[in-house]
Simulated assay, not measured.
Amino acid sequence: MIIDYGNDPDVIYHDKRPSQKFLAKLSRLLSLFIGLIIFLHIIGFNGHFENGLLFFLKHEYLYLSGYALGMFGLLLCWRAQKEMGRSWRVGIDRKKTELITTGVFKKIRNPTYSGLFLICLGTLMIFHNMLILLWVVTFYISIEFQVRMEEEHLMETHGQAYIDYLKTTKRYFPYLY
């Protein structure tokens, strides 16, 4: 059963602006890339990635920590999206949405992206090779661009309320950044 909340959560894929079109394509490419890497790992095709292995990350506890970090990241994404309700979407559209500043948003402005970063780091701890590291860095850079465009949009949309919110919360991780 599909519930219609009256919005398109994937507006980035329909946006005509060059920046959003670029980030939508990059998002799809990164998704395909990580899917391929994980698929190859699952079927045992790891030999070709061994040259790029980050040996300092090869430890049983890091595997377990990677899974835990990834699961926590998924939980954080789910919670953030649930708390945003009708305001949640991927990308920027011109519909005015409610500014959410409660729940996890009371401490961080972008908990969905924070959760995605934790998933990326968990994935790196599990697969620990240079291709995954490249994927994580590329993903981080693309999200940094997207977040800054979203912040400009939210300043235009919510004005002083959003500026005040910026002063009391960090972008991704409480008390850090």
Results as ranks from 00 to 15, higher is better:
165 Y>E: 02
145 F>V: 06
70 G>N: 06
92 I>H: 00
6 G>S: 15
136 V>Q: 08
162 Y>Q: 03
109 R>W: 03
165 Y>R: 07
58 K>I: 08
126 I>C: 08
43 I>F: 09
72 F>K: 10
132 I>H: 03
76 L>I: 10
74 L>I: 09
19 S>M: 04
159 G>W: 07
79 R>G: 07
105 F>S: 04
172 Y>K: 08
94 R>M: 15
126 I>F: 10
33 F>T: 03
41 H>Q: 11
61 Y>V: 12
53 L>F: 08
159 G>C: 12
89 R>G: 02
119 I>Y: 04
34 I>P: 02
74 L>T: 07
137 V>Y: 05
114 S>K: 01
32 L>D: 12
103 G>M: 06
56 F>C: 11
38 I>S: 08
84 M>Y: 14
32 L>M: 13
30 L>H: 08
48 H>M: 13
79 R>Q: 10
138 T>P: 03
168 T>P: 05
92 I>V: 08
170 K>T: 11
82 K>W: 14
102 T>R: 15
87 S>V: 10
177 Y>D: 08
17 R>Y: 00
148 R>F: 00
134 L>S: 10
149 M>L: 09
21 K>F: 00
73 G>N: 07
47 G>T: 11
101 T>R: 06
33 F>R: 06
95 K>W: 12
153 H>G: 04
66 G>V: 02
151 E>Y: 11
49 F>I: 07
100 I>D: 02
175 Y>T: 14
7 N>Y: 07
130 M>Y: 15
163 I>F: 07
133 L>Q: 06
126 I>V: 10
69 L>S: 01
37 I>F: 09
86 R>A: 08
43 I>R: 14
25 K>I: 00
159 G>P: 04
29 L>D: 04
73 G>D: 10
81 Q>G: 06
105 F>G: 03
11 V>G: 01
177 Y>H: 12
156 E>Q: 08
49 F>E: 06
140 Y>E: 11
16 K>D: 00
58 K>V: 08
74 L>M: 07
43 I>N: 13
5 Y>D: 05
50 E>F: 13
175 Y>W: 09
66 G>P: 01
71 M>R: 15
88 W>I: 05
24 A>R: 00
48 H>D: 15
58 K>N: 13
27 S>Y: 06
143 I>A: 01
38 I>R: 12
157 T>W: 01
18 P>R: 00
105 F>Q: 10
175 Y>L: 11
127 F>M: 08
20 Q>A: 05
107 K>C: 10
162 Y>W: 08
118 L>F: 07
71 M>E: 13
11 V>E: 00
112 T>E: 02
42 I>R: 12
93 D>R: 01
75 L>K: 15
22 F>E: 00
37 I>T: 11
34 I>W: 07
39 F>P: 11
152 E>L: 05
150 E>L: 04
89 R>Y: 04
88 W>N: 01
4 D>L: 13
139 F>R: 01
172 Y>Q: 05
106 K>S: 03
58 K>G: 05
125 M>P: 01
31 S>K: 15
96 K>T: 14
113 Y>P: 04
